[in-house]
């Protein structure tokens, strides 16, 4: 849950990158860490990794400046994508304000994307959150690989698979080159702040 400090006029919200193993969640955070040096308010911490697989979570605190007189801070987290770390994912999801679902564009990962989205829905439900109501955006990642002739899904296909019912904003991206990474985060922050504003009525 977002922390809203009325006296200091400060909002701190929690954004979680979710998605199947190896889809590029950690790479997204690394790209933000490199690109938004000025906004970084602390270091990026990767808690327990195995090779470059996340076992616990990555954490990156950001300061996003003032919006309507209110200081906005965001804490970015990634979850471990491997199927067997479901309980860790649930733990990291606790208190989430906004979610970025990172989908892998590889055709061979089609089913993994869908299973991960289902897992997200289930974990949210256990916290009493409806996936249709929480601020959520989609990112279709690894688009750079199309140029190398690798079999990727078309954006239309991914929309159909993952976003037919949710109908949330979606972004194509390449976390490794940084394309679309900032747009995705901005898209998610926009939804999240609008949502919090309705809930907390902080910008009268």
């Amino acid at each position: 849950m977002a922390i809203f400090n009325l006296k200091k006029r400060e909002i701190e919200c929690k954004i979680v990158y979710y998605g199947p193993g190896r889809c590029g969640k950690t790479t997204n955070l690394e790209s933000i860490f490199k690109t938004y040096q000025k906004q970084i308010t602390g270091e990026m911490v990767s808690i327990n990794t195995e090779g470059d697989r996340t076992l616990f979570f990555d954490f990156l605190p950001l300061g996003l400046g003032k919006i309507r007189g209110c200081e906005i801070r965001a804490q970015l987290y990634t979850v471990p994508g491997q199927v067997r770390y479901s309980s860790t994912r649930k733990l990291v999801l606790r208190g989430v304000d906004g979610i970025i679902f990172v989908a892998d564009s590889f055709k061979v990962r089609r089913e993994k994307n869908m299973l991960s989205l289902k897992d997200l829905q289930k974990n949210l439900k256990e916290y009493g959150i409806n996936i249709l109501k929480i601020p959520l955006v989609m990112q279709y990642n690894k688009r750079d690989l199309a140029e190398e002739g690798l079999p990727l899904m078309s954006l239309e296909m991914m929309e159909r698979d993952l976003n037919r019912q949710l109908k949330v904003p979606s972004f194509s991206a390449s976390a490794i080159t940084g394309d679309g990474v900032g747009e995705t985060l901005q898209g998610c922050m926009k939804l999240t702040l609008e949502f919090l504003q309705k809930q907390l009525k902080w910008a009268e």
Binding site: R22, R53, V108, R109, L145, L150, P151
Partner: peptide, 13 residues
């Protein structure tokens, strides 16, 4: 394809 999957840790694929 196999080489790129392998480099990304997608070993089963």
């Amino acid at each position: 394809e196999a080489e790129i999957y392998s480099s990304q840790g997608l070993y089963i694929e």
